[in-house]
Design a protein around this nucleic acid. Structure first.
Length: 673
DNA sequence: GTTAGGG
DNA sequence: CCCTAAC
């Protein structure tokens, strides 16, 4: 029942394409066998015990299924239980719909066996198992059966399991065993075999990773089961191989992870480079103790690491995101980046939604009311990672960010009955099967994002974005508006938004600033960045973040990448004008002279923009992207560029020039107003 | 702190 | 837009 690959990757957001993989027999097993440890043994014991129990119970069913060849390896079958195709809408809503999708995703016998597991787990009688159970009582225990096809094309049932210790060491043990079908009998692989086989495959396939053995009645459902239409997936050409590479310690199996959470992630050269780069640069100052190897082991979210320097993610992630291959070309870089962060947001939101509650039925009489006692909602696990050197306050803020991010987007409650999502809000409880007489032990509630979904037809791989993971740069974006560098921006600067300035600001700005900037600022901040539905003055923009923390425009101590703010035509014009006057190589002066009030434009930005402008001007119009810059401006860019590259005399009475610029700007502004 | 240039 | 080196 490799039913479906879980294709979200938490922060990193990229859904991996489905990649044909070599037959299992060809692939390497990975080094996990080297790192057998106590906990792992426990896991094996447990696994073996459970498996044995399981097989007792389900032998017939499994074998029959094997015989019938029912099960097949594959991605999500996109069918519900009745075998109906799921239409787009349904499909889409499944993204956030854990229960029913799970139902649909799994071949029935899996569920049966899971149930067997669940029901039998507590009943494991062997004394030897007791300590094991105790030992892992606080752990997440995951067991699953899934079918894979071996090299011969035969379906093999495999049992995989994992134990995730909740303790600080974050040790994770995963192992697995095969269930062979021989002569109508099922055998479970022996432990030694289990030793070499890991659940890697299981995890790779993302099979029902989160079916937990739960002695309580609470429903704990996988948080994310998103059937990604393959067509959509195809778009992600840039895949890194799904799953885990076998050539290093980063493999999945039973190796001990470092003290850091280690969502496994394929590595890439880019990632390494990034990491190394960070080590040699700023990040090193923050966490000087980090070593390369540790980072490698933690090689999750290279990108998010890189970008956020802190990570918040839920445990439910099954798979690491393939690292977005960003360097398509110099230009695409930014765009790709954007996509990534967008996805990151959405993924967090999706992942942060699961929650379960226990429900009790208080039923004695024939009272037609069903009484629920929701003891608690289970908050999805959030993993947060901050540098060792981060302050406690910073940690708190980070946690706050995470929590607020979940709540900030609004949440809604979902109802899950017997593992299946009750979707129809109009049905009566009775119709839905929720009645005092029914077994309310199987009823649960989930917390989900309040937003529903985007239509898949939008050809966007970006689900709605709402829940940001990092305050500053992500929250402001509109949930339904994927951020693009389009030119929603400002070219003309129509509305009199300036009036929203405080009087003081107006006074100051109007006189010394360049004509365009103030207006552009407003529009830019308000519209193109979708920071607010209602345009607001730029100085407030940064404070509009849903998450209250880190409201300052300055990046937090964990330093995030600044939000991308494409230059408007007006800005370009101002820049060109300034450079024409001041020449290149005096970016400070350009800044002061023409962008003094554009706080988000540093002289480095201006310099960079000029660089790109020169490049843009020298390429064919067809190759340009983003908001088109008028050719006239580009011509000026080129001429100015050539002029100033020849005239090295960059010392033309600069102060006078700056003043002249300012005055000129002020005049234009007045005239324009 | 600026500038220049690679990424 | 980030990062560094060089100044």
């Amino acid at each position: 029942m490799v039913s479906k690959k879980r294709l979200d990757y938490g922060f990193n957001g990229y859904r991996a394409p489905i990649i044909p993989r070599a037959p299992r027999s060809i692939r390497k097993r990975g080094p996990h066998k080297n790192s057998v440890e106590d906990s792992k043994l426990c896991a094996f014991e447990l696994l073996a015990a459970v498996a044995g129990k399981l097989l007792e119970e389900s032998e017939s069913s499994v074998s029959s299924n094997v015989a019938e060849g029912k099960v097949q390896l594959g991605v999500c079958q996109d069918k519900n239980e009745k075998g109906q195709p799921i239409d787009d809408k349904t499909l889409n809503s499944e993204s956030f719909d854990h229960g029913s999708c799970a139902e649909s995703a799994f071949v029935p016998e899996t569920s049966i066996q899971e149930h067997n597991l669940l029901s039998n787990f507590k009943g494991l009688p062997q004394a030897e198992n007791v300590p094991v159970l105790e030992q892992i009582s606080d752990s997440d225990i995951k067991l699953e059966i899934f079918d894979v096809k071996n090299a011969d094309g035969n379906t093999i049932h495999k049992l995989g399991g994992s134990i995730c210790d909740g303790d600080s060491s974050n040790r994770k043990v995963e192992c697995g065993s095969e269930i062979h079908s021989e002569d109508d009998k099922i055998q479970i692989g022996d432990l030694s075999k289990a030793n070499t086989f890991t659940v890697k495959e299981a995890i790779e396939e993302c099979v029902n990773t989160n079916v937990l053995i739960n002695s309580e009645s609470s429903v704990h459902l996988p948080l994310y089961r998103d059937p990604i239409p393959s067509a959509l997936l195809q778009k992600h050409w840039n895949n890194v191989k799904l799953g885990i590479r076998d050539d290093d310690d980063n493999s999945f199996g039973c190796n001990k992870s470092s003290t850091k959470i280690r969502p496994v992630r394929p590595k890439s050269r880019i990632g390494h480079r990034r990491i190394r780069k960070m080590l040699t640069s700023k990040y090193r100052k923050v966490a000087p103790k980090l070593k390369d190897c540790e980072l490698y082991n933690t090689s999750e979210g290279v990108k998010s690491f890189y970008r956020n320097r802190k990570r918040i993610y839920t445990r439910e992630r099954c798979q690491p995101a393939p690292i977005k291959k960003r360097k398509l070309s110099g230009h695409r870089f930014a765009a790709a980046y954007q996509e990534t962060s967008s996805d990151a947001i959405s993924n967090l939101s999706e992942k942060a939604t699961g929650a379960a509650a226990t429900v009790k039925s208080h039923q004695k009489t024939k009272d037609p009311h069903v009484k629920f006692s929701i003891k608690s909602f289970k908050v999805p696990e959030l993993y947060i990672e901050v540098p060792e050197t981060a302050s406690v306050g910073s940690l708190k803020r980070t946690v706050m960010e995470a929590v607020t991010a979940i709540l900030g987007g609004g949440i809604r409650v979902g109802v899950v009955l017997q593992g299946k999502k009750v979707r129809d809000d109009n049905r009566s409880l009775q119709q839905a099967g929720i009645s005092p007489s029914s077994n309310l032990e199987t009823l649960g509630f989930t917390l989900e994002p309040s937003f529903t979904n985007v239509t898949p037809s939008m050809s966007t791989k970006k689900p709605p974005l709402i829940l940001p993971c990092d305050a500053d740069e992500q929250i402001p974006r509109s949930p339904t508006t994927p951020m693009i560098d389009s030119g929603i921006s400002n070219a003309s600067g129509d509305p009199p938004l300036v009036t929203k300035f405080d009087d003081d600001d107006v006074d100051n700005n109007e006189i010394i600033s360049s004509p365009q900037t103030p207006t552009n600022e407003l529009i830019d901040g308000a519209v193109s960045d979708s920071k607010a539905l209602v345009p607001v003055p730029p100085m407030n923009v940064d404070g509009l973040a849903v998450v209250p923390v880190n409201s300052k425009p300055k990046r937090s101590e964990l330093s995030q990448r600044r939000i991308r703010r494409p230059f408007s035509v007006a800005e370009v014009e101002a820049l060109v004008a300034a450079v024409e006057k001041l020449g290149t190589g005096r970016w400070r002066d350009v800044k002061v002279g023409a962008f003094e009030n554009a706080d988000h434009r540093t002289y480095v930005d201006l310099k960079d923009k000029w660089k790109t402008l020169v490049h843009t001007a020298s390429i064919a119009p067809q190759q340009r992207r983003g908001e088109p810059v008028p050719q006239e401006l580009l011509n000026r860019v080129l001429s100015a560029h050539t002029y100033w590259s020849q005239n090295q005399s960059k010392q033309q009475g600069k102060h006078n020039m700056i003043e002249a610029l300012k005055i000129e700007n002020a005049r234009e502004e007045i005239v324009g107003a």
